[in-house]
């Protein structure tokens, strides 16, 4: 039981980290960024390439996260900013982000090939630690620690800093934000940077955890990330954190007690049930965004 909880928290922390970035952009722009999973993949490849060039994972990881953030800014410029202000920007942004995701995957395919890539041996110390009746690898514990720390930093940033207040102002009403002197385009670009850096961090941790990176690695978390942000309440960062851990735990318990072939079926069944009881998700609020 303790082992299953530990494994669930470990998987859930990656889902949650992926989803908080996903939901942050939705909260600010009201648009799903379908290229989030491609940024997840590119950051993982960036960290992998840096470790292959002899850099320590502790240097490659922050650089990979930074690369994710920069890719996010490029993504915003290419796929979202040109469409802003159009009456159909929600659906056109969805399609253009899907297009950019396809381009990103093609670039990765060209650079790294279709096969699974793995981090060099010894990238991370192979050590097991006993916790109560369970055991976890040092890598698993670091992944949980890094994920929780990044989510805590995001929560602090949104709640207590000037940039956080500006992001929340733009999310609630771009017009009110403009009246307050906020450069809305700049804040949206910064939100993309933060969102993509977090998505990139999730990609690097996922790549380390399963030691498997391929151009389509993002697809394995894309749908789950979407389920997490719907379950948590679209645009809600705390909701995404709770739902991410919940999904991780549900998956691990399903595999242990029902069977691995039922993993996704039961996870999505839970999503349906929660949405029947709470149509806006766990911490979702009524749509109140102004133009």
């Amino acid at each position: 039981m303790a082992q299953q909880i530990l494994n669930g928290v470990f998987v859930g922390s990656i889902y949650a980290l992926f989803a908080v970035g996903y939901t942050l952009v939705f909260g600010v722009l009201d648009i799903l960024n379908l290229a989030h999973a491609a940024v997840f993949m590119l950051s993982a490849f960036a960290a992998l390439a840096l470790t292959e060039h002899g850099l320590s994972i502790w240097i490659a990881m922050p650089l990979g996260i930074l690369a994710g953030g920069v890719i996010g800014i490029v993504l915003e410029r290419l796929a979202f900013r040109p469409l802003r202000g159009r009456s159909d920007s929600n659906i056109s942004g969805l399609i253009s982000s899907l297009a950019v995701a396809t381009v990103f995957e093609a670039i990765a395919l060209q650079l790294f090939g279709p096969d699974i890539s793995r981090f060099p041996q010894g990238t991370f110390p192979d050590r097991t630690i006993a916790i109560g009746g369970a055991s976890a690898s040092l890598l698993q514990l670091c992944i949980v620690g890094i994920s929780v720390a990044l989510m805590a930093v995001l929560t602090f940033l949104l709640a207590r800093t000037r940039l956080g207040r500006r992001i929340r102002a733009v999310a609630e009403s771009p017009r009110a934000a403009r009246i307050l002197g906020v450069d809305v385009d700049k804040v949206i670009a910064l939100a993309f940077f933060i969102s993509s850096a977090l998505g990139g961090a999730a990609g690097i941790l996922f790549g380390l955890a399963f030691n498997s990176i391929s151009p389509d690695v993002g697809r394995s978390v894309e749908l789950k990330g979407l389920a997490v942000i719907i379950l948590g309440g679209m645009g809600s960062v705390p909701g995404a954190v709770i739902a991410g851990f919940a999904l991780g735990l549900i998956e691990v318990f399903t595999v242990a007690h029902v069977g691995s072939s039922y993993r996704d079926a039961i996870s999505f069944a839970v999503l349906f049930i929660v949405l029947i009881a709470r149509p806006r998700g766990l911490l979702g609020r009524a749509a109140a965004r102004e133009a």
């Binding site: 207040r165 500006r166 929340r168 609630e172 009403s173 009246i179 307050l180």
Partner: peptide
Amino acid sequence: PEGRAILHRMTVLENLIAGAEA
């Protein structure tokens, strides 16, 4: 502006701080 453009989800204090940060 007309209609006030208050940030409804933020607290009163946060609205004031956001004004002071303009």
